[in-house]
């Protein structure tokens, strides 16, 4: 027997830059793919989601008012942090998803590369998705993509890291703030990534992560009127229908699940931006 006390880690929520246990005081056991005990994670509640929305709303304008260059730097910094803690990520991707070490390593590498890729996009979105429109008159006419606002993300259930990165970093790169429900059965890699945002200059509230039961949390997230967009990637077809119905009450932009993630597609960057068109007179 070891002469040290075992130091066990609790995997907590990320709400507005803090790591609270759930307001409800609940936790649940997370199992590895083989069915062995892996960790205790916080079982978030509706009120945790509510608190996260308050933080996300306040953070979004701050995040969007930072320069695009700065946002890119911050997201790139997250990649740096993930790189230096990649062994830990590999370990938990391996256990959570039940894959071999080399597969887990490749997954983590791809996830980090994806973060770098999105970091590069922050100051290029407006050129690619916006532009100057030809109009018949003495005017400039610009279309400018702007973030949708606060986005609720139901992260993929199977792809605990790569899928999470894809769904969460894309809207953040576009200037949104995010409340993500991590994979119910495989939340640990997402929580680790959340911890890394704390050392990457992410303003508090830009990324919020709630762990817990998707069926319990997703309806509250979908019906919350102060959320502007919803990514349903982690919901099955039946749940997605129900959630889209709830989201309709406050006219959210909804991204339905099932679209295969294509390599180098800006599909998810495009999903949560709004085009704003501005007329401006041409001076003498």
């Amino acid at each position: 027997m070891s002469d040290r006390l075992e130091v066990r880690k609790t995997y907590k929520l990320l709400i507005n830059g803090a790591f609270p246990r759930s307001e409800s005081g609940r936790s649940y056991e997370v199992m590895s793919a083989k069915g062995e005990f892996l960790a205790n994670a916080a079982q978030g509640s509706r009120k945790d989601v509510r608190d996260a929305v308050v933080g996300a709303r306040a953070a979004q304008s701050k995040w969007w008012s930072a320069s695009a260059y700065n946002r890119g730097q911050v997201i790139y910094r997250l990649a740096e942090m993930a790189e230096s803690r990649s062994d830990e990520l590999v370990e938990f991707v391996k256990l959570s998803e039940g894959v071999k070490s080399d597969v887990a390593k490749a997954t983590v590498a791809k996830s980090i590369d994806r973060i770098v890729w999105y970091a590069g996009w922050t100051d290029k979105i407006s050129q690619v998705l916006g532009g100057s429109n030809p109009v018949a008159g003495p005017f400039y006419n610009f279309s400018v993509p702007k973030p949708t606002g606060v986005i609720g993300v139901i992260a993929p259930q199977d792809s605990s890291l790569e899928g999470f990165v894809e769904c969460v970093i894309a809207p953040i790169a576009a200037g949104n703030s995010v409340i993500a429900l991590a994979s119910e059965k495989r939340p640990v890699p997402a929580v680790l990534l959340g911890e890394m945002t704390e050392t990457s200059d992410f303003p508090a509230g830009v990324l919020n992560i709630v762990t817990g039961l998707t069926s319990e949390l997703a309806p509250g997230l979908s019906s919350h009127e102060d959320i502007d967009g919803l990514d349903l990637e982690g919901a099955d077809e039946a749940l997605a229908d129900e959630l889209a119905f709830l989201a309709a009450g406050s006219i959210k932009r909804v991204l339905r699940p099932g679209k295969k993630i294509q390599k180098n597609s800006i599909h998810r960057l495009r999903a949560f931006v709004e085009t704003s068109t501005v007329w401006h007179t041409i001076g003498q």
Partner: peptide, 9 residues
Amino acid sequence: RGTYIRPDE
């Protein structure tokens, strides 16, 4: 309403 409300309402 049973749902959380937008403050700017």
